[in-house]
Design a protein around this nucleic acid. Sequence first.
DNA 1: CGTATTATTGAATACCATCAACAGACGTGG
DNA 2: CCACGTCTGTTGATGGTATTCAATAATACG
Lengths: 261, 261
Amino acid sequence: MSESRNLAAISCHHQPGKISRVACHECGLAPLCLPLSLTDEGVSKLDSIIQRSRPLQKGDYLFHQGDIFDSVFAIRTGSIKSYTITDSGQEQITGFYLPTELAGLSGLNCFTYPVSAVALETTSVCAIPYIRLEKLFDELPALRQQVMHSMSKELRDYQDMMLVMGQKSAEARIATLLVNLSMRFKRRGFSAHHFRLSMSRNEMGNYLGMAVETVSRVFTRFQKQGLLRVEGKDVEILQPAALSTMAGSSASTMQEQRASH
Amino acid sequence: MSESRNLAAISCHHQPGKISRVACHECGLAPLCLPLSLTDEGVSKLDSIIQRSRPLQKGDYLFHQGDIFDSVFAIRTGSIKSYTITDSGQEQITGFYLPTELAGLSGLNCFTYPVSAVALETTSVCAIPYIRLEKLFDELPALRQQVMHSMSKELRDYQDMMLVMGQKSAEARIATLLVNLSMRFKRRGFSAHHFRLSMSRNEMGNYLGMAVETVSRVFTRFQKQGLLRVEGKDVEILQPAALSTMAGSSASTMQEQRASH
DNA sequence: CGTATTATTGAATACCATCAACAGACGTGG
DNA sequence: CCACGTCTGTTGATGGTATTCAATAATACG
């Protein structure tokens, strides 16, 4: 087995076999998450409204498209995909969410969630009832700013996706996704060059607007070129610079750098 | 000349030849714009921080990608496109903004604007300095909600765009854009079936991830099928139902209905 | 350990991009 | 007001990239 870690292995003082009820001030992810720039008192207030439940198993839903909107979710460990489905049955994955990222924001002030969110692996989340969060916004401007920051970051991510889907070749799309994941892993303390994909080839293809077969072929090509070493979902980036070049110096790399200054 | 109106013709008590300094409480767009659900006092406070300047001409910029972020902009009349450009020179249009819509939100809490915004025709906007807006959030929860509502709506729009670019054919993309514009015009009191496109074929193609030539061909095909009557930028939708079917019953149609319930 | 799902590979096809030529609209200045 | 050049839009011919269909291989799961 490779040494790349699964995101489900991330833990803020996770105690195996027990529901992890780690408070925000004990959580290692706090500096990257909502508590960022909150005072201790603010963190306590936020903490008091957060609902922590037992970890979700792969395939468990955070919410379904059409459900009444009531909470947003901060990913603690694991990963989530969100997707829309049209009445004609077309599915489109709209995003992958990693620890510290907020899922469900697009349902805000909307009666129902416009997407579904489902765990890609064993995943634990902090559920934040929106009504109570809204109330905290009055007392904690920094919290409000943090949520708005998350929303504008997600807007920028979608803008980048339009560039990806509008202009990039199949190879560039895969390269972009890998570079993007790499940066996000790195920011969270994981290896930037060796990780495990929690999504299937099918899900990657759907997300990037290409057929599964094409995803597979691109991975094969990248391996033959010596860019990657791939074993199923385990990926090692052998030539990060070359992969970034393939991805095409996109706005997203610039933005991620900006965000992590 | 056709009877379809240009968005630049929309006016809230616009006085020709003079800078329109119409206050929010006099503006016909208020019920669809930020003032929605504000008290009279709240509207006054918002009004006091809004900067109204002379109308932009076609090609004038609201802001450039990389400029220091300082304001968001509510479109009053006309229309705006926003786009990113990569360092390799690839351009991608990320959105078109119509009256009452807010441009610049993706730069929020980001040091610089991640996109450029430029007028597609004669356009007037309300500039809202973000620092001052932020301060108002404390006093006016409804204003804050309204801004967050705009952001989540924009998130949903991008989610829809992923479906469009990820799965839809060239014909379905054009149909989707036309149906989407149609609904937005209707909501703003314009004809849903007869309007003037303020963007070029090139801009449509870029936005939708397809070549200009393909845009042109699709328009020709739609005309031959009797779906549309097209004269340059003037478009009449002859068979709205058929066009919606072509668009593929998307999440966006559902959402727009939801939003305007 | 067997079955179902997921991933890979090959071959044929389709859709759209690209290249190229031309037509029309627009705007400027003579 | 017309001549001119430029930009935008249309149409045709061709080719490339990625999809689709099909079969096999590998993996996950009960």
